[in-house]
């Protein structure tokens, strides 16, 4: 019987050549990896860690671990996904050290409208206006602060999916949880943020000009 070949995800990308070269002994090129990803990791840190100082630590510890373990990386996944798995591991360890942001579950019930009469049938201005007319610096800052309010297991999923652009399967691989779990946490995290935004726009109407 004719069988389709098993689909392996295509893990070759822009990093493959550089990573392979370093694995084959060109350790002087490690700095190229640092240049390529320090900004990305730093911003990831700002989104998931307590503050800028923790974020710097996250970048440094992540690169130290990459440097140490790159020889064992078998390129069965994209380098970037492997790097984020290391970074989230560092992040977990740092959180345990500093004991901030307690874990708690968000239940769907928290976000369910209690009464149909509570639901707006009219689209609020902040969702109806063109996004760039609404999203200013102040809102961006508020959003970042709201992301920090998320319990960590939800925050990581939201940041990976909606800010860093990973797919459900990739986030599942990075975090070591099932795709279903990624979806459940993501939905609740988004609902949490939406409530925060509703509160924000209740006090700050977007400028309609």
């Amino acid at each position: 019987m004719e069988r389709k070949p098993i689909q392996t995800p295509d893990v070759r990308d822009n990093d493959t050549e550089l990573v392979t070269a370093i694995q084959n002994g060109a350790t002087d090129r490690f700095e190229e990896l640092v240049t390529r990803y320090e900004g990305k990791l730093y911003n990831f840190g700002l989104r998931v860690c307590k503050d800028a100082s923790d974020s710097e630590d996250l970048v440094q510890e992540t690169f130290i671990n990459i440097f140490r373990y790159l020889k064992d990386f078998r390129q069965e996944t994209k380098f970037k996904n492997w790097m984020y798995r290391i970074a989230t591991g560092v992040c977990h360890r740092m959180r345990r050290r500093s004991k901030y942001a307690p874990e708690r579950e968000l239940s769907l019930d928290e976000f369910l409208p209690q009464d149909l009469a509570d639901i707006d049938t009219e689209l609020p201005a902040w969702a109806a206006m063109p996004i760039h007319q609404v999203l200013n610096r102040e809102l961006g800052d508020h959003l970042k602060a709201s992301v920090k309010e998320l319990p960590p297991q939800y925050r990581l999923v939201l940041v990976l999916r909606d800010m860093e652009g990973f797919s459900t399967d990739e986030a599942s691989e990075i975090l070591g949880i099932t795709p279903t779990n990624v979806k459940v946490r993501l939905h609740r995290a988004r609902l949490f943020l939406r409530e925060e935004l509703k509160g924000y726009f209740h006090d700050n109407q977007p400028h309609t000009s």
């Binding site: 996004i131 999203l135 959003l143 970042k144 939201l158 800010m163 652009g165």
Partner: peptide, 15 residues
């Protein structure tokens, strides 16, 4: 639409 917009904001946050 409000949920879509929430996601849209997240995607647009600048580094």
């Amino acid at each position: 639409e409000t949920l879509k917009r929430t996601i849209g904001f997240c995607e647009e946050v600048k580094e």
